[in-house]
Amino acid sequence: MKSLGSIRRSFAPWNDPAARPYISFEGITKRFGDFTAVDNLTLDIYEREFFALLGASGCGKTTLLRMLAGFEQPTSGRILLDGQDISGIPPYRRPVNMMFQSYALFPHMTVEANIAFGLKQDGMPKPEIEARVAEMLKLVKLEKFAKRKPHQLSGGQRQRVALARSVAKRPKVLLLDEPLGALDKKLREETQFELMDLQQELGLTFVVVTHDQEEAMTMADRIAIMDKGEVMQVATPAEIYEAPASRFVADFVGSVNLFEGVVRERDAKGTTIADNGGMTIRTDIAGEEASPGQPVWFAIRPEKIKVSSRKPANGFNAAEGEIWDIAYLGDMTVYHVKLDDGRIVKTSAVNAARVVEDALTWSDRAWISFPTDAGVVLTR
């Protein structure tokens, strides 16, 4: 099978049947009174993986992270770390460290004292502490700020101090709970790549909780999409985006158009769908789970749809409408096209040239069209 999208590195132990998971959640359920935060969840994470738990507030991702850290205990099920059941082991005895969104730095201590704190608690000899702190300061590029206190640092610098303190004890697993939430957009984007480089250099397993889709897509080797305490799909960022397993995943990650219809025919070459609005959709995706007469949804991303004033030559994967809204974003333009049946379709086009040949503006008549390999057929 051809790879979906580019990959950051040659690392995919989840595709190796002989590979043993480093972290395993086995049938984990967590209840708070009558509320079920995590519901019979099973999930595997591999050593040296940068893994993201992505979902809306209240989906159970932070509860799952806290159970791995030892701050919460499962109602049922077990958690294995490197083959050992860690249920009941207190947080301070687990080879796991957690970096909180608030950073939780000691305001009266200097940067180097904050980093050294956990090492002193463990009774490490003073010369070794000094060497480790110097190593961590160099790692996060804060050597010049060693004597400063947290209030004398920027948000990004405080984030680096918290990160250095978290990895100073060299845990097997680093847990990050919304680690970049307090940073501004530009700094957050820069720090995402720094975290990726740091994880590679340290060779640690990172598990990050976030509700920021772009953050998860940028940093993670794999993403688990969560909803109401359950995992909806686990896959690489490219697979999540290009081949979502359900309407929920397709709609949650990025922007998507969903066309509802009925399978007219299916064969080895693809699937033909009679869209409820009268459009005929032909796709190369065989839609193996879909049979003729079955209701389905065709999911397609805005950038896969072309909008033009010219009618396409073929009689399928096309519909006519009117330019309803336009958003010029500099590098791209987003069009909302209102089809003649009343539906709004989102499309986007990269502004590769300074002058657009087929300029479209509000209220213009326009056609949308897309190739047969542009979308995916969903049955749920």
Rank of each mutant, 00 (worst) to 15 (best):
I225E: 09
Q294T: 09
I79P: 08
A12L: 05
K269Q: 15
G88R: 00
A146H: 08
N257M: 07
A52Q: 08
S87A: 14
T272K: 12
E189Q: 15
R264N: 13
V263Y: 05
W367E: 05
Q84F: 09
Y335H: 08
A290G: 02
S6T: 11
P21N: 03
E320V: 14
A313H: 08
A286W: 02
G118S: 05
L119A: 04
T347R: 07
D39F: 10
S308E: 00
L4M: 13
V296M: 03
R282A: 09
T63C: 05
K149P: 01
L53T: 08
A37K: 10
G315E: 05
R247W: 04
T361H: 11
E190G: 10
Q73W: 11
A134D: 14
P292M: 07
T272F: 08
K269D: 15
G375M: 00
E242P: 00
G27E: 10
I305H: 01
P295M: 06
P17L: 10
A146N: 01
K304H: 09
G58C: 02
V296T: 05
F252A: 02
G375P: 01
D227H: 14
A37C: 10
E288N: 13
R380K: 15
M279V: 10
D34C: 03
E239G: 00
R170M: 06
H151L: 14
S291F: 13
M196N: 09
V161K: 02
V262K: 08
V207P: 01
A313F: 04
L68D: 09
V234W: 03
M136Q: 11
S102D: 15
V96P: 02
G60L: 04
K149Q: 12
A182L: 12
A318L: 08
P171N: 09
